[in-house]
Design a protein around this nucleic acid. Structure first.
Lengths: 102, 102
DNA sequence: CTATTTTTGACTAAATATGTCAAAATATAA
DNA sequence: TTATATTTTGACATATTTAGTCAAAAATAG
């Protein structure tokens, strides 16, 4: 199950770049990037978008990983987590359906 | 698609209780309860638990509504919302599976 | 009308998220 | 080894978000 952090670390290591370089591009301290890659911090949306551009991968792929990480983080300690996700899916389907028609 | 707010309002109106009374039980200003019922504020977990007790409904049912509302709130503006939820489900399944065995 | 209840919005306080910095730990290479 | 580069850690500061109060305005019920 790869989290966004794992993905970023892999991309960075493939190119043999130090944290410093990528962190500079994101305009944050390398300490934060280190934590993001290991899952101790969540990046903000803008950083995810920048990373997709930087590593030339599909922005949507990273956004899905980022969003799902956030969702999991928010509910993982709850017994009803899975049930809640299923209900959330229905709600999202309902919302998008009624958004298209006016 | 009923949100938690709708549920609470219905329960409260069935018993013909003013906001004041229920809000006092929750130890918050009635203004907040008003906003919670209409979806302009999210209750905290503790309040959801108290409400279940107060109205004598299943705690888990309210928690599922509360959690799913929170999840939807977090992702609804994103194009990848549905996809993210599906990935999140897989991640949660994976986590709970590996939590049971040690 | 008059009472009661509900809603609104400006404001404050508390909590959480995001970031810096510098030192410690780890890995790399001479 | 020992020197150098990289990564990790944790204490701390700052910013943003969330949760709450309060009082007045609006809506509803008698």
């Amino acid at each position: 199950m790869n989290s966004l952090g794992d993905t970023i670390r892999k991309l960075r290591e493939e190119k043999e770049l130090p944290l410093r370089t990528v962190a500079a591009y994101l305009d944050i301290d390398q300490a934060i990037l280190s934590k993001i890659e290991r899952g101790y911090r969540k990046p903000v949306r803008e950083q995810v978008v920048k990373l997709a551009k930087y590593f030339k991968v599909k922005e949507n792929d990273l956004l899905v990983a980022w969003l799902s990480d956030k969702v999991v983080y928010e509910i993982e300690d709850e017994d009803m987590a899975l049930k809640a996700l299923q209900v959330a899916e229905e709600k999202v389907k309902y919302i998008t359906k009624n958004k298209s028609k006016k």
